[in-house]
Design a protein around this nucleic acid. Structure first.
Length: 570
RNA sequence: CGGGGCGUAGCUCAGCUUGGUAGAGCGCACGGUUCGGGACCGUGAGGCCGGAGGUUCAAAUCCUCUCGCCCCGACCA
């Protein structure tokens, strides 16, 4: 491709809405252009990279036995009503009406459509199992789209859905997808980790996420360097601090109410009473669709709301409003406690089980109880793991210590089970003639996000440093002085030879100054560069260099193509 | 959804406080000099100042409404 005939325009200025480096570089290097919040045009240069990734994904999906199809982006509301998600999905679901005022959605995911398709075609165990996938544009009306392709509203996703007769079949498909995902991210040369994940609104039993390690990632993840345990913090467990019981146990003291005027945060109360936040029990009142609930946790720790949501088996969960807290506890926010708290289900984190003589709110303005003890003052039946795990916590699987890092979620695989097949009546008949819902799995992979993540991981101060498999072109051929007859002849010859070899080459034949060409070359980050300039050509040489190290190697024009093929590993 | 900010040339922004009819840099066009790390000089094109309404002799500037965009928060008890 000749640059002069291609559509690639770089900019020097950083757009004012681009915060993270991958977004800035994707705009500056002419990969994407914003059309509306979270909605982008994939410009030719960016589209080439996305296509490279999609080719890798298709190759690995096909190799893993999945079969490609393509489903509609616009879906009838009836299917979503049938699955129950029309009511549950919330505002992220873009709902639209056609001219007859019939309801539709712009698909954020395709469980409903695929399940509907399959239930019409598949009736017998003899037809199972299979795995269908597509690469397609989805829309999720995010509260806050940001970071360019990392969190867009419209985005490209590969989604696959497996259907089987039993759990063993699902395990096989799941494992095949897990392995395929590893091959995909390895093929992209990304530094990634697979972590245990919560199943979220999609639902199901087991789930793993693929995280590309990056400080700008929106997900927090813990990993144990000793045993390899890794999990999204939404899901992560830690070894229960049973040590607390032994070291913290003291003979019970008399329960006492103390005045704590205006002290309504843990920190204020702890400082005021001169006790460690670890000896405070934090009582949080949450609002759910089933009513108010109270959750107790040690003062120095945070609640993992996903765990709480799962524990109470509710769809929505949010901290209760000021008025509701007052109505439930009889006290303003900041003074809630389990002692004497009535009509609200209480669940407590294991971290406070061993505490004695601890501090809680008194359910009364400006007052706390000290020397509270389990059994004597509060009788709790509901104990579980609610803690938001963080770096430094003990590993739940070995005696290691967890490390915290951030990641970009580029893939997510679920064992769905029968959640959708039951709702939509996607059944098959077994050998005995009995009907069963099919066992499903679903496997998502963010295409645009993966490319953004690759840039996040592969750049320097001058621009993108593409991993070769995702690079829009493999080779950038620069004619430094195209008006020089010898330079032009040599560059044209090299261009023809590279094309003949099937190399993806971008030929910078533009009438630009050398400085501009070099700056652009660094910015767009094509892995291998050949520079043909009058100076080195006078010595009978052209220059071959790699974007990653930029070390210049002078070779005779006749050897350049061989050198390039070697650099590309072909 | 709550809080804050911003919409002025293709891009990044100044001008607004103290109303008087629009600017810079980059980019673009033309001419000249340049030509191995985003050149220089000159000339020029390009904006109903997001939109609507109001105040005023006069509005980019003040007021109201509206639309769009961005940031923070929504893990505080």
């Amino acid at each position: 491709m000749r640059w002069s005939r291609f559509y690639l325009y770089t900019t020097r200025e950083v757009p004012n809405d681009a915060e993270v480096i991958s977004h800035q570089l994707m705009v500056r290097a002419g990969l994407i252009k914003k059309v509306a919040a979270g909605i982008y045009t994939y410009l030719p240069f960016g589209w080439r990279s996305l296509q490279k990734l999609m080719a890798i994904v298709r190759r690995e999906m096909n190799a893993a036995g999945a079969v490609e199809l393509s489903m509609p982006a616009i879906q009838p509301a009836e299917l979503w009503v049938e699955s129950g998600r029309w009511q549950r999905y919330g505002k992220e679901l873009l709902r639209i009406k056609d001219r007859h005022e019939r309801d539709f959605v712009f698909g954020p995911t395709h469980e409903e459509v695929i399940t509907d398709t399959v239930r019409r075609d598949v009736k017998s165990y003899r037809q199972l199992p299979f795995n269908l996938y597509q690469i397609q544009t989805k829309f999720r009306d995010e509260i806050r789209p940001r970071f360019g392709l990392m969190r867009g509203r419209e985005f490209l996703m590969k989604d696959a859905y497996s259907f089987g007769a039993d759990a063993a079949s699902l395990d096989q498909d799941y494992e095949a997808m897990r392995a395929a995902y590893c091959r995909i991210f390895e093929a992209c040369q990304l530094d990634y980790t697979m972590v245990e994940a919560d199943t979220g609104t999609i639902g199901g039993s087991a789930s793993h996420e693929f995280m590309v390690v990056a400080d700008t990632g929106e997900s927090a993840v813990v990993r144990c360097p000793s045993c390899g345990y890794a999990a999204n913090v939404e899901k992560a467990e830690t070894r229960t601090v049973e040590a607390a019981a032994a070291t913290e146990a003291h003979p019970p003291q008399a329960l006492e109410e103390v005045a704590t005027p205006g002290k309504h945060t843990i920190e204020e109360v702890a400082r005021f009473l001169k006790v460690s936040p670890k000896r405070l029990v934090k009582t949080l009142i949450y609002e759910t669709e089933k009513g108010l609930v109270a959750a107790l946790i040690r003062g120095d720790r945070e609640i993992n709301e996903v765990k709480l949501l799962n524990h109470f088996d509710v769809e929505h969960l949010a901290l209760a409003s000021e008025e509701k807290v007052r109505a439930a506890t009889g006290a303003p926010v900041g003074f809630a406690g389990p002692v004497g708290l009535k009509d609200v289900p209480i669940v407590a984190d294991e971290s406070i089980r061993g505490l004695t003589n601890f501090v809680t709110g008194a359910n009364k303005g400006d007052a706390h109880y000290v020397n509270v003890n389990w059994g004597r003052d509060v009788d709790l039946a509901d104990w579980t793991d609610l803690v938001l795990v963080t770096g430094g916590d003990p590993c739940p699987r070995c005696d290691g210590t967890l490390e915290l890092f951030r990641g970009i979620e580029v893939g997510h695989i679920f064992k769905l089970g029968t959640k959708y097949s039951e709702k939509l009546g996607c059944n098959f008949t077994d050998e005995e003639g009995n009907d069963h819902p099919m066992i499903m799995g679903c496997y998502g992979l963010g295409i645009g996000r993966t490319v953004a993540a690759a840039i996040e991981q592969n750049h320097d101060k001058d621009g993108i440093v593409w991993p070769r498999p995702l690079a829009p072109f493999e080779v950038l051929l620069i004619a430094l002085n195209p008006e020089d007859a010898e330079v032009k002849r040599t560059a044209e010859e090299l261009y023809a030879q590279l094309q003949e070899k099937g190399v993806d080459v971008l030929f910078d034949d533009r009438d630009e100054r050398p400085g501009v060409k070099f700056k652009d070359a660094d910015l767009i980050g094509i892995p291998v560069r050949i520079t043909v300039g009058a100076k080195s050509l006078a010595d009978g040489k052209v220059e071959v260099s790699l974007r990653r190290d930029r070390e210049k190697r002078l070779v005779a024009p006749g050897e350049a193509v061989g050198k390039v093929m070697e650099s590309l590993g072909r």
